[in-house]
Structure formats: C-alpha cells, structure tokens
C-alpha cells in the first residue's frame, strides 16, 4: 500500500462516517442562522454601533452587506470550529484503538510512520474542507442576501474598508484561520495517539483551547508570561488582515508560530505512536 492510497483510504473513512457530517451540518445551520439573523436585525445592530457617529455625521451608502456578515461569522471561528475539527480528528487514532482495528491495520504493508502521516494528512484535509465550506458559504449567502459593499470593522477603532480592498483580506483571513484550525487538528490528533477512546481527546482538545484562550485574552499580569507560549495567542491574528494597514510582520510571525505548532505536535505524535505498545 502506498502513502497516497493510505491517504485516500483515510479520507474515505472520515467522509463515510455520519459524525463528519454533523460538523458540516452545524456549519451550514450556523452560517444560515447568522446571515438571516443579521438580515432581520443587522441594521439595528449597526445603528447601535454607529449611533455616536450618526449624531455628528450624515451617512451615505449601506454598511450592511455580505462582507459585514461574513466578518461576523469569522468572529465566531474561535469557539465552534475548533470543536467541530476536534470532533473528527480526535477520533482518528483513538477510534481505531477503541474499535479494536488498530492491530489489524498495523499488520498491513505500510509502516507506522506512513500510516500516521496518512491519517494526519487526512485530518488536515478534513480541516481545510471545513474551513473552506465556512468561507464559501458565508460569502456566497452574504452576497445573495445583501450584496457586497464597503466593510465596517468595529474594534478599538472603526475601520471602513472600501469594497475593492476587502476580498483579498478575506482570502488571507480564511487562510490564516485554516492554519489555526490545523493546529487544533494536530493537537487533537496528538491526544488521540495518547488515548484509547475518542471522548478524551475531543474533550481534552476543547479544554486546552478554551483554557488557553482565556489565558491569552484576559489582561491579567500573571498571564502575561504565559501568553507568548500559547498557540491561542496567535490564532486571533487573522483580524490583522482587517486593519486599515495590516501588519504583515505580525501576520507572518503568528503564522510561523502556528506552523511550528503543527509540525511539533505531529512529530510528538509520530514519535509517541512509533514507540507505543499496542495492547488493545
């Protein structure tokens, strides 16, 4: 069996399981719900956010458009997409152990290394498909419901980005988000190698992501020392694409750190699994 056929087999296994489609269904439901919610109440939200400005300025043009809703959807990336990624990738190795197929699979004409590499690549491809679905769905439905226009990004400042200058930012942000989800996939894959049941890796991954996110986000002095070492500190830097003048240095540094996490977690997984005694 070649590596390519092993990858194809793993992808088949992933996409033939009903659990995989839970994640896609959740994405579709969430995106549609947010888009229709914004369609119903979005103008009120925008009016609230810009009320002070409206006291001083007259506005021309409509900020409620597909880019605005897609940006709102991206903001939810940090909470539900990691879970949907871990739901599948956390089961890749531990699921085989739990179902008793691990020994059988490892007797085939493929080394442990190739087998782990095949599963890892399948995990990354699954994460890519999930994030791509999120991106395409949010932009397409946003365009259909609202059309496109200038994008308002409300953070510490209000940034109004011209329509012609927005789409590439979404490409960059989704690519960066994809890399961040690959870190989550790699982490859950690592936990999956350590465990013989699937619940542990999935819950463990979510626990780590949530805890690290809290440590990364809160401006508390005791957490400051930890922040540079937490991957969640860098996961939110996709927002830098929507600054008026993106800080490319920051983006590349964060991307490098996330990529390093992916590689390191994969190597830990590989080293562990190659030496693991298969007792199930």
């Amino acid at each position: 069996m070649t590596l390519l056929s092993a990858i194809q087999l793993e992808l088949y296994k992933i996409f033939s399981r009903p659990r995989t489609y839970i994640a896609f269904a959740v994405i579709v439901v969430l995106v549609c719900a947010i888009q229709f919610g914004v369609y119903a109440e979005g103008q009120t939200m925008l009016d609230m956010a810009t009320q002070n400005l409206k006291d001083t300025f007259d506005f021309s043009g409509n900020l409620l458009n597909g880019y605005f809703t897609s940006f709102m959807i991206l903001n939810t990336l940090w909470v539900h997409i990691p879970f949907l990624v871990a739901l599948v990738t956390g089961d890749l190795l531990s699921g085989e152990a739990a179902s008793g197929t691990l020994r059988l699979l490892l007797t085939r004409s493929i080394s442990r290394t190739e087998w782990v590499v095949a599963k890892f690549i399948a995990a990354l491809l699954y994460s890519i498909v999930l994030v791509l679905l999120l991106g395409v769905l949010s932009l397409v439905i946003g365009k259909m419901l609202f059309g496109f226009g200038d994008l308002i990004v409300i953070r510490n400042t209000i940034n109004i980005l011209p329509e012609s200058d927005v789409l590439w930012r979404f490409y960059g942000a989704f690519a960066f988000g994809l890399l961040a989800m690959c870190v989550v996939a790699a982490l859950s894959f690592f936990f999956s190698a350590l465990s013989d049941n699937s619940i542990g890796p999935i819950v463990g991954t979510m626990g780590v992501v949530i805890a690290f996110t809290v440590f990364s986000t809160l401006d508390v002095s005791i957490f400051h020392l930890m922040k540079p070492f937490l991957f969640t500190t860098y996961m939110g830097d996709w927002k830098t694409f929507f600054d008026f003048q993106p800080d490319y240095g920051k983006i590349f540094r964060s991307a490098f750190v996330l990529l390093a996490h992916v590689i390191a977690l994969f190597l830990f997984t590989l080293l562990w699994f190659r030496r693991k005694d298969i007792l199930t």
Partner: peptide, 23 residues
C-alpha cells in the same frame, strides 16, 4: 474642525476579545 463623542462599543457588537479586560 469639530467635537465628536468617543464611541464605547459593547463587546457583543465588536466581538473584539483582544480588547477584553484592557483599560
């Protein structure tokens, strides 16, 4: 040249967790 009130944007609208807890 004019006075304009600074905006205090609720976290629920900005979803800017990076600024959460910051002065």
């Amino acid at each position: 040249n004019f006075d304009v009130e600074k905006m205090n944007i609720p976290l629920g609208l900005s979803m800017d967790l990076d600024s959460f807890g910051k002065k």
